[in-house]
Design a protein around this nucleic acid. Structure first.
Length: 435
RNA sequence: GGAGAGCUGGCCGAGUGGUCGAAGGCACUCCCCUGCUAAGGGAGCAUAGGACCAAAAAUUCUAUCGAGGGUUCGAAUCCCUCGCUCUCCGCCA
């Protein structure tokens, strides 16, 4: 079997022809690759594959000759003997090629994407660069409560009940807050579909392993996912983000250039095991096993992807602006970039009780990283299939938006103001009071 | 859950061991003819990987007929496992 492009997240031609460039860009995000091993594998692959293909050609020709001879009623003993002579070497060669390709694949599958040239250099989130800031944090004339206190005081946010039903990192919303939570998702979808040109989609919340591989969650991040065994049929995975089902819509497709860009959005629950986050955000709704999110996905022409990233980030910002929530836009540095991202902007919303900004959206351009795994292509000017670029971003995380509202819209008497844009979704309700 | 039938190129569809990467048709592209809105003729038209090349094109080799494995000198065709689709029955939001 040939080494398909999908087995590698980077263009293998690039690794062959410009290893120095690849090393340099990977080093920028703190990733070292084993060039010696790669080159050794490549060298052997080349000789063995070439030889094996020669043998295959020979076998095919002989087999054809046997067929023709039999058709004429001639004796084929000599021809058969000829083929049998190369049989052993051929079988060994085919096995070795498969083995080498598996090894190459294993080596390459965990490569992160190459960061775009415009990504600031750095090693951790401390080196992220603030791009812009919107809104002014409200000045409170009373001592601010954090979102858990506000919600619990309203009698509409119940962590104890969630622990009883499920366990830690879940929450139960009731009454006005549950309705506000629902309103947030509706509002976001409405804005994106009517103003930003996204097509709303309803998608599965459980997906197969191929889909998780396609967008890059597998094989490297299995421990972050919830898997559901299904007998001998492998397993389902609960989606950690609607990015997975939405982006996988184009897996294996060759799109007409005129179909681009594709803009899709979906409101789904997201499930994350949060392995390795022990002790972080243990209290409250910031980090949950289950949360809602409205996701934005774009499938675009490669030349358009950076313009699309700016636009998509703007679409997410619109939500925070309409909700009148102060935020800032951060350009992630090379060291803080997600595995598949070439460039990412995080939106961080103001959280008064923590006196800081917290991530509420992450907007990324994956360039061809996901497209290569997905084999998602379009027909270019020359009529040739070419990989698309994929982008996605939260537009925005519903749970964290609720956190931000609980804190930014709290009042001294313990009630909660309803953001103006959401009031129509709550039948005109302006204030949520104790249940 | 039970019984049965299927899965072939963008689409339809032929093909039950050999010269089949795949007839024929539709769609599409180019050319010719025709001048009246439709028809005729010709050619082309899958994807991926390798070799060659500075690169591209061309050429050439290999792989791919739901997926994976097996039998065979040779598999779309035979065998096994799995997935999916359809029909009937049962169940059900």
């Amino acid at each position: 079997m040939p080494l398909s492009g999908s087995s590698c997240m980077l263009d293998i031609q690039l690794l062959r022809t410009q290893p120095d460039l690849v090393s340099e860009r990977l080093a920028a995000r703190g990733f070292q690759w084993d060039r010696t091993e790669f080159q050794a594998l490549e060298e052997e692959r080349k000789t063995v594959q070439t030889r094996t293909q020669e043998l295959q050609a020979k076998r095919n020709a002989s087999s054809k000759a046997i067929g023709a001879a039999k058709g004429r009623g001639e004796d084929t003993t000599d021809l058969m003997a000829e083929v049998n002579q190369i049989a052993a070497e051929l079988a060994a060669g085919e096995a070795r090629v498969a083995e080498l390709q598996d090894q190459l694949e294993a080596l390459l599958l965990n490569f992160p994407n190459l960061p775009h040239a415009s990504v600031p250099a750095g090693s951790s989130d401390k080196d992220n660069v603030e791009v812009r800031r919107w809104g002014t944090p409200r000045v409170f004339d009373f001592s601010v409560k954090d979102h858990t206190e506000v919600g619990e005081a309203l009698g509409q946010l119940d962590f104890a009940a969630a622990v009883k039903i499920s366990g830690a990192r879940f929450s139960v919303l009731k009454g006005g807050l549950a309705r506000l939570h629902r309103a947030l998702g509706q509002f976001m979808l409405d804005v994106h579909t009517t103003e930003h040109g996204y097509t709303e989609a309803y998608v599965p919340y459980m997906v197969n392993a191929d889909s998780m591989r396609g967008t890059g969650q597998l094989p490297k991040f299995e421990e972050d996912l919830f898997g559901i065994p299904r007998g001998d049929q492998g397993k389902f995975y609960l989606v950690p983000t609607a990015e997975v089902p939405l982006t996988n819509l184009v897996r294996g497709e060759i799109l007409e250039a005129s179909a681009l860009p594709l803009r899709m959005t979906a409101h789904t629950p997201c499930f994350r095991s949060e392995a390795g986050s022990y002790g972080r955000d243990v209290k409250g709704m910031i980090r949950q096993h289950q949360f809602d999110k409205v996701e934005l996905v774009q499938i675009v022409h490669p030349e358009q992807s950076y313009a699309a990233l700016e636009a998509l980030t703007g679409h997410a910002e619109t939500i925070l602006q309409r909700l009148e929530l102060p935020y800032r836009v951060m350009a992630l540095c090379t060291g803080d970039l997600g595995n598949g991202a070439a460039k990412t902007y995080d939106l961080e919303v103001w959280v008064p009780a923590q006196d800081t900004y917290r991530e509420i959206s992450s907007c990324s351009n994956f360039e061809a990283y996901q497209a290569r795994r997905l084999q998602a292509r379009f027909r270019n000017d020359k009529g040739r299939p070419e990989l698309v670029h994929t982008l996605n971003g939260s537009g925005v995380a519903v749970g964290r938006a609720l956190v931000a509202i609980l804190e930014n819209y709290q009042q001294a008497d313990g009630s909660l103001m309803v953001p103006k844009v959401l009031q129509p979704y709550l039948g005109g309700l302006q204030v949520i009071t104790r249940l």
